[in-house]
Deep mutational scan, measured.
Amino acid sequence: HRQALGERLYPRVQAMQPAFASKITGMLLELSPAQLLLLLASEDSLRARVDEAMELII
């Protein structure tokens, strides 16, 4: 289940942060499945989480 969510998330994360897409997707997969579904449904929520992840990385 998580694998399938990751496969759906990755291209969207890659479009926002290509250099760190794998790392960010891995970080996002730590969230609950319900939270992941919310990110897939909301571009704004996904962008906010990706921005948060980038702050942790750099």
Rank of each mutant, 00 (worst) to 15 (best):
R47S: 05
A15C: 06
G6P: 05
D51C: 06
L46R: 00
E30T: 12
L38V: 10
M16S: 03
E55S: 13
D51T: 10
S42C: 05
P11W: 15
I57M: 07
A48D: 07
M54F: 10
Q17H: 10
L29E: 02
R2T: 10
E43R: 07
F20I: 03
A15V: 08
M16F: 07
L38S: 10
Q35P: 02
S22A: 13
P18F: 05
M27F: 06
A53V: 11
S32K: 08
Y10I: 03
L38C: 06
L36K: 01
Q3G: 08
R12K: 13
I24Q: 00
A53C: 08
A21Q: 01
L39F: 04
Q3L: 05
E55A: 13
Q17L: 06
S42F: 07
L36Q: 04
F20L: 10
D51Y: 15
A21C: 02
V13R: 02
L29N: 02
Q35F: 10
I58T: 09
D44W: 04
A48K: 12
E55P: 02
M16L: 13
E30K: 14
P18H: 06
A4N: 08
L37V: 08
E52A: 10
P11K: 15
L9S: 01
L36T: 03
R49T: 08
L40S: 02
Q17C: 12
I58C: 06
Q14G: 04
D51A: 14
A19G: 11
K23M: 11
S32D: 14
I57V: 05
I58E: 07
S22H: 12
S45F: 13
V50E: 02
L56D: 07
T25W: 10
E7K: 13
A53K: 04
L40G: 01
L38R: 11
H1A: 10
L37H: 07
P33F: 12
L40Y: 03
E43F: 07
E30A: 12
D51G: 07
K23G: 04
P33H: 14
R12L: 15
R47L: 05
E43T: 09
E43C: 06
F20T: 02
E7P: 07
M54Y: 10
G6K: 14
V13Y: 01
L38K: 10
Q35R: 06
V50M: 03
D44S: 13
E30G: 09
M27V: 04
M54N: 02
V50P: 00
L37N: 07
E52D: 07
E52M: 11
L37E: 11
R49C: 07
I57K: 00
E7I: 11
A34M: 10
E52V: 07
P18D: 04
L37R: 08
M27I: 08
L37A: 08
G6I: 15
L5W: 11
L39T: 05
L38F: 14
E55I: 10
L28H: 00
G6D: 05
D51I: 08
V13C: 03
L56H: 07
P33V: 13
E55D: 09
P11Q: 15
V13Q: 01
I24H: 00
P33N: 14
E55C: 07
E43A: 09
R2L: 15
I24N: 00
R12D: 03
H1W: 04
Q17Y: 15
I58L: 14
R8H: 07
A34R: 07
R2F: 05
R47E: 04
A19W: 09
A48Y: 13
A15H: 09
M54S: 03
A53H: 04
M16P: 01
S42W: 04
R47D: 01
A15S: 07
L40W: 04
K23E: 11
E7Y: 05
Q35N: 08
A48P: 02
A41F: 07
P33W: 11
A41R: 13
S45T: 10
K23C: 06
F20H: 10
E52K: 08
A34Y: 14
I24W: 02
R2S: 12
M54I: 06
V50K: 00
R8Y: 12
E30W: 09
V50G: 00
I57C: 04
L38E: 06
L36S: 01
F20P: 02
T25C: 06
A48C: 07
I58V: 09
E52F: 08
A15W: 04
A4I: 14
L36A: 02
D51Q: 12
A4Q: 13
L46E: 00
A48Q: 11
G26A: 14
Q3W: 05
I24S: 00
H1D: 15
E30V: 08
Q3A: 08
E30P: 02
E43L: 06
A34I: 09
S22Y: 15
L29P: 00
L29M: 10
A15E: 11
F20R: 02
A53G: 02
L9K: 01
A21W: 03
L38Y: 12
L37Q: 06
L28N: 00
Q17R: 09
E43H: 07
A34F: 13
L28M: 04
Y10C: 05
L9P: 01
R47V: 05
A4F: 10
A15T: 07
L5T: 05
S22C: 09
L38W: 13
Q3S: 09
L28G: 00
E43I: 07
A21D: 01
A19Y: 13
P11A: 15
R47P: 00
A15L: 10
S32Y: 06
D44A: 14
D51R: 10
R49M: 10
E52T: 06
L29Q: 03
Q14R: 15
L31M: 08
A19L: 12
L31Q: 04
A19D: 09
L37W: 12
E55V: 15
Q17I: 12
E43G: 05
L40P: 00
I57P: 01
E7F: 04
M16Y: 14
S45V: 12
L39S: 03
E52C: 07
I24D: 00
L56R: 11
S32C: 06
G26F: 15
G26R: 14
S22G: 10
L38A: 10
R49I: 08
R8A: 11
Q3N: 12
S32V: 06
L9D: 00
R8G: 05
A34S: 09
S45C: 06
E52W: 13
K23W: 09
F20Y: 13
Y10H: 06
Q17D: 02
A53Q: 05
P33S: 14
P11T: 15
D44K: 11
M16R: 04
M27C: 04
S22D: 10
A15P: 04
H1P: 08
L37G: 06
S45M: 13
P33T: 11
A53D: 01
L29H: 01
M54D: 00
V50L: 03
L36E: 00
R49E: 05
L39M: 11
R2D: 13
G6E: 15
V13F: 02
A21T: 03
I24F: 01
Q17A: 15
D44Y: 06
P18R: 05
L36H: 02
L36V: 11
H1N: 13
P11I: 15
A4M: 12
I57T: 02
A48H: 07
M27T: 02
R49S: 09
Y10V: 03
E52G: 06
E30Y: 09
M54P: 00
L28W: 01
Q35D: 05
V13T: 01
D44V: 13
K23A: 14
R2V: 14
A53R: 02
R49L: 11
M54K: 07
G26K: 14
A4W: 15
I58Q: 10
Q35M: 12
S22F: 15
I24L: 05
D51W: 13
A4H: 09
P18W: 06
R2P: 13
R8N: 07
P11G: 14
Q17V: 13
A15D: 09
A34Q: 09
I57A: 02
L46K: 00
A21V: 04
T25Q: 04
A48T: 08
R8P: 03
L28S: 03
V50W: 01
L5H: 03
L31F: 07
F20G: 02
L9H: 02
G26T: 15
G26E: 15
D51N: 13
A4C: 08
S22E: 13
L36D: 00
V13D: 01
L40F: 08
R49V: 09
L56W: 12
A48G: 05
T25N: 03
E55H: 13
